[in-house]
Write a protein that binds this DNA or RNA. Structure first.
Length: 879
DNA sequence: CACTCCCGCCAATTA
DNA sequence: TAATTGGCGGGAGTG
């Protein structure tokens, strides 16, 4: 295209009087005098009258060529008709006849002809996509403006967007330097990463804590070699900056442009609707976006979109939804940026272990789950996500003090969540419409109680078995793989399938596959408690839930994993897949922050945010249900255990994995889904609670059910070595078993070995999996190698302790037990809290124990991973 | 009427 | 202080 244009354009003579064709000047330096020269000279200002008049004049003045019809046609046509032919055929244009042209010329240029997109095309036509590195092309705004016959203002619009993508950079007043697309892929990659981080986390919130900055800086540096191009990515940081600074800058078209692009890059479907983008970009926390603001944002987005369209990065599409079609844009640019910047930032080997994926998942879930508590959310976020910003913040400010921020944070999150949710919906619909695939999200309204869906990861990435649980009214995520027939009431035990066993609180899946489970909160209370958060929270949950695991993984692999880590290999693939699968429901947000997450969290001493969260969470729960927070945890655990045990009998034999529909019925029984780590994820396991309280899911505003999923993230390694205890449901106050009763806690041990890929995993929410899950698996609570202690014996107390220490991220009330360290004495959450933050936030490497621990695990995991993991269920009750 | 998005006022920044 | 940038939103063109 460009070439063509160029040829055309090239001949052009510089504007009449213009001294020099600055545009072509090589070397930015040549004419150092950034003169603002020309500006007026050629442009007789005389006619203030109509813009059109000016335009005409300019056009005519600009060059003879401009007058030429053909030229015009060329210029205009391509853009105008872009829809028709994305691949413009030069011939076409030529062919197009002049006859029309005359009129064309006469009539005042139509609006289209003056469109920014067209203008941008003209602009781009002037410069080579891939200029020789040796020469630098300088762009003079004035010149360009005059040549193109537009006011400078318009040029700014174009340049700003181009600048956001590093296609140009400002060198001086009125002077920009043309870089071309050499760095485009790199830039996109960066944006993608940033997007994942940002949107994944949702919050890159700003605090400028040193850490944050530090991190950022570091990251950037790592990623970006050149100093020059990076300017934009900074946007995330700016938040911190003072309001004043932010004011203008924040809203900058550049930043918007980057964010907009990020949305595409992060989006699974690669389609972003305008309104959603606008909502997301409006950082306002408020749910209800100011209408005028929204409109303004949309205007800007159109501006940006026009430029991006002319760059061939996006194209306009429409997403149809029940309400009608909505304008949207689809990313048609490169999706994979293997290139240059690939070197991920895997900091330390240890980091790799972190499952970005899980993290992300967790985060999302967490968010969703706890609609109520801000703290919780935050905490969860922190815990779950490694976002530096967040964490730092948290760390620095332990809970309450900074509520404001939290609020903001929350609000943002909420907002984002809402947006995401919408997006998801849309995407889903879109997808559904476009593809036969049923999106998991489509589930929408889940009948009260049971609302959880299982989302399979995108196929490619993980061999996933998708389970549908019709009974649950779960929408089955059919993301990629073959959909499984839903099992009606009956439970299925088939291998690949995950099933809910009727009556059983378990979900079983084939070990090999990963599942994402979305669950509603078990507790309605939360929603009640947090009225404000409630809806939003749901939205968040949904949104988050929506996020495809794949993304997470991908993310994790990228960032989290150190280069050396096994994940790396896969990474590309994952990423790719992720990227590729356009059909899948979009996940706007991908949590990203692999860096520290697990480890940091896991850090023993440090009270991980997760721990904090838990506490908070618990507290909330407690408040609604029972007051004793401290005891509560333990109690919960115990309860669950008890229950589980109780239920066990009912349960099908270990070998079977069934999901009981009843679960659905039983609002309170928590179900967990265990997600087997894939290679990439090998380190983490996710447990999601399957059960949700009916209330938890609110479809309210949206049809999409908001799911709050309590989830627990556990490093697989950790699991392997440690016995996991599925947490009891704290859930509803309704829960039959009050605090006091904990009979047995069921401890589930996942040992890598034991959990073979083939082995189905059981997740029991309330129910115990006491029976041997798999016959084969020996119940070794501990692997010899691991230093970790198994708490199995002490489930009860361990619960609390575990949470804190364990690398597990808890999104939810779920209590996982995992003991990493041998520390015999279980720490109570409380005790732990204070200390952790610091440790927590430290770089993974800094974490002594955890790291070591992790490494061990990691190794094991790897080894084991290939091998297997097995789930062991021990009936052992704690004390 | 809903989309698009051009246009240019005018404030924030720069030089 | 003047010029450059660029946010912003009215309102016109399109379909």
């Amino acid at each position: 295209e460009n070439i063509f244009d160029r040829s055309r354009m090239a001949p052009k003579t510089p504007i009449k009087n213009e001294p020099i064709d600055l545009s072509k000047q090589k070397g930015c330096t040549p004419e150092r005098n950034p003169i603002t020269p020309v500006k007026i000279i050629d442009r007789p200002q005389p006619d203030p009258w109509t813009p059109t008049a000016n335009l005409k004049m300019l056009v005519s003045a600009a060059s003879p060529d401009m007058r030429d019809r053909e030229k015009k046609k060329e210029l205009f046509r391509p853009i105008e008709n872009s829809e028709q032919s994305d691949t413009p055929d030069s011939l076409q244009y030529d062919i197009i006849d002049d006859t029309t042209v005359d009129e064309f010329e006469k009539q005042r240029p139509s609006r289209k002809q003056k469109s920014l997109g067209l203008l941008c095309q003209k602009f781009l036509a002037r410069y080579p996509n891939y200029p020789l590195s040796t020469e630098k092309t300088t762009i003079s705004l004035d010149e360009v403006a005059s040549v193109l016959g537009v006011e400078r203002r318009r040029i700014y619009d174009i340049v700003n967007v181009l600048e956001s993508l590093h296609l140009v950079s400002r060198v001086a007043k009125n002077q920009y330097c043309w870089h071309g697309r050499h760095n485009l892929s790199q830039t996109l990659k960066m944006l993608q990463e940033a997007g994942e981080l940002q949107y994944g986390e949702l919050m890159t919130f700003q605090h400028k804590e040193q850490d944050l900055e530090y991190k950022f800086g570091e990251r950037k540096k790592e990623t970006i070699p050149h100093s020059q191009d990076r300017p934009l990515l900074d946007f995330s940081e700016p938040d911190c900056s003072s309001a004043s600074a932010n004011s203008r800058k924040d809203k900058s078209l550049r930043i918007m442009s980057q964010k907009f692009v990020m949305l595409f890059l992060v989006s699974k479907t690669k389609i972003v609707t305008l309104d959603i983008a606008a909502k997301i970009l409006i950082e306002e926390t408020q749910d209800t976006v100011d209408h005028s603001k929204f409109k303004t944002k949309v205007r800007r987005l159109y501006d940006i979109a026009n430029v991006l369209t002319s760059l061939g990065l996006i194209k306009k599409v429409h997403v149809t939804e029940e309400r009608g079609r909505k304008p949207a844009f689809k990313w048609i640019g490169p999706v994979e940026f293997s290139g240059k910047t690939d070197e991920l930032r895997g900091h330390s080997p240890t980091s790799d272990s972190l499952p970005g994926t899980e993290r992300g998942d967790c985060t999302q879930y967490q968010i969703c789950a706890t609609g109520k508590q801000r703290f919780t959310r935050h905490a969860s976020f922190n815990g779950a996500q490694p976002c530096e910003g967040t964490r730092r913040k948290v760390s620095s400010e332990p809970n309450s003090p900074h509520q404001e921020r939290q609020d903001e944070y929350c609000s943002k999150m909420i907002n984002l969540a809402a947006v995401c949710r919408q997006k998801i919906e849309e995407d889903t619909r879109w997808v559904a419409r476009n593809s036969s695939i049923t999106s998991p999200f489509s589930l929408l309204p889940v009948p009260g109680d049971s609302d959880f869906c299982v989302n399979p990861l995108p196929q490619a990435v993980f061999p996933v078995v998708q389970a549908e649980v019709p009974s649950l009214s779960l929408p089955i995520g059919i993301s990629s793989q073959a959909p499984y027939p839903s099992m009606p009431a009956a439970s299925k035990t088939e291998n690949g399938k995950a099933t809910l066993v009727p009556n059983q609180p378990f979900l079983c899946f084939p070990s090999s596959s990963l599942f994402m489970l979305y669950g509603g909160l078990q507790e309605n209370n939360l929603s009640e408690t947090l009225p404000t958060a409630g809806d939003k929270g749901n939205g968040n949950a949904e949104a988050q839930a929506a996020i495809p695991p794949a993304l997470c993984q991908k993310r994790s692999s990228h960032k989290c994993t150190s280069p050396s880590s096994p994940a790396d290999d896969e990474e590309p693939a994952l990423k790719k897949q992720t990227m590729e699968q356009s059909d899948l429901p979009l996940s706007l947000v991908v949590p990203k922050k692999p860096f520290e997450s697990p480890k940091a969290e896991s850090t023993p001493g440090s009270g991980c945010p997760s721990a904090v969260h838990l506490e908070t969470y618990r507290l909330d729960l407690a408040s609604r249900a029972a007051p004793e927070a401290a005891s509560k945890e333990s109690s919960d655990c115990q309860e669950q255990e008890k229950r589980s045990q109780n239920t066990d009998p009912d349960e099908p034999p270990p070998g079977n994995e069934h999901i009981s529909k009843e679960n659905a019925n039983q609002p309170f029984q928590p179900q967990y889904l265990y997600v087997q780590p894939t290679t990439g994820l090998s380190n983490f396991n996710f447990l999601f609670s399957a059960n949700q309280a009916p209330g938890a899911i609110s479809l309210a505003s949206n049809q999409l059910p908001s799911l709050s999923v309590p989830c627990v993230m556990v490093p697989s390694a950790a699991l392997a070595s440690f016995p996991l205890v599925c947490s009891p449901s704290f859930t509803s106050p309704l829960s039959p078993v009050p605090d006091g009763s904990f009979s047995a806690a069921a401890s589930v041990n996942f040992s890598m070995s034991s959990m073979a890929s083939t082995t189905p995993v059981f997740i029991s929410s309330t129910a115990m999996v006491t029976p041997k899950v798999s016959p084969a698996p020996s119940v070794d609570l501990q692997q010899p190698a691991h230093p970790a202690l198994h708490l199995s014996p002490v489930l009860t107390r361990s619960c609390s302790a575990v949470k804190l220490d364990s690398p597990v991220c808890v999104g939810h009330p779920v209590t996982l037990l995992k003991l990493q360290q041998p520390s015999s004495t279980p720490l109570t959450p409380k005790s732990i809290r204070p200390a952790h933050h610091e440790a927590f936030f430290k770089t993974p490497g800094s974490l002594g124990d955890p790291v070591a621990w992790k490494k061990n695990e990691g190794n094991q995991t790897r080894n084991a991973s290939s091998v297997q993991r097995r789930l062991e269920i021990s009936g052992t009750s704690p004390d």
